[in-house]
Design a protein around this nucleic acid. Sequence first.
DNA 1: CTTAAAGTCAGACATGTTGTCTGAGATGCC
DNA 2: GGCATCTCAGACAACATGTCTGACTTTAAG
Lengths: 130, 130
Amino acid sequence: MTHPRKIEVTDAELAILQALWERPHQAIASLVPSLYSRGGKGEYATVQTLLMRLEKKGCVVRDRSQRAHVFAAAVQREDLIASHLTTLAEKLCGGSFGPLVSHLVRGGALKEEDRQAIREALSELEDDTP
Amino acid sequence: MTHPRKIEVTDAELAILQALWERPHQAIASLVPSLYSRGGKGEYATVQTLLMRLEKKGCVVRDRSQRAHVFAAAVQREDLIASHLTTLAEKLCGGSFGPLVSHLVRGGALKEEDRQAIREALSELEDDTP
DNA sequence: CTTAAAGTCAGACATGTTGTCTGAGATGCC
DNA sequence: GGCATCTCAGACAACATGTCTGACTTTAAG
């Protein structure tokens, strides 16, 4: 379990990450149509700017060996989730995750399959740390 | 289970809420020293602006019956947690909370007491929805 | 070779957010 | 009256966000 680095991406940046999670190793020309239905002139540049910012944050990697650079996500969904949950716990729960889970479990927002998954995960933990 | 309204507060605003959660029904003069150690001139006005924005968002209520208005939180910690978790689930888990909990449980970030609380909460649920 | 298409890069831009503060005026107290 | 204490309206710089323009480079086609 690595200590999760703080990852902050905006909505537009997240959309790009989603596209890259869906299909890794895309060039800009491939990303644009899946992000914008109306094919405007500036959209290519917009995606480019977003990718540049994501790269600066370490959230995507860029393969410059091709003429058209190929991009891939450098963070996974789980990394983002971990980062957000950590931030949330720090800000609102004194750094502890317990209240978050408690809230979720008691909130009734979980499906039966979710609950089953939790039970199993808890059992595994119990075996590892008696 | 109320559908959680989207609540967005900035860091400075959150600090004010924390102070109001700690001690409800405070006037500005009472809030300032607990938020800023260096007693500057503008801090009073800063807190005032923050409270005004919080009121506009429905996060605090203001009692204007006194000369110095008295403020109280209109949202609880749990409301903020719920709002953030919902947003997180929508953005990264297709609206489902299961992955969030799974991540927390498997991430090893939970103390034994947390896990015990979860087990109990799960048991209660099991009784309600067989 | 010339050209057009397709890229990259640097940077601008409008808009909104965030935390901060100033100044004008109202109100109560000694 | 004079002073401390409020409220209120609004200004402000700094930064974030999503968007786009223009200059320049490289590739491939004619």
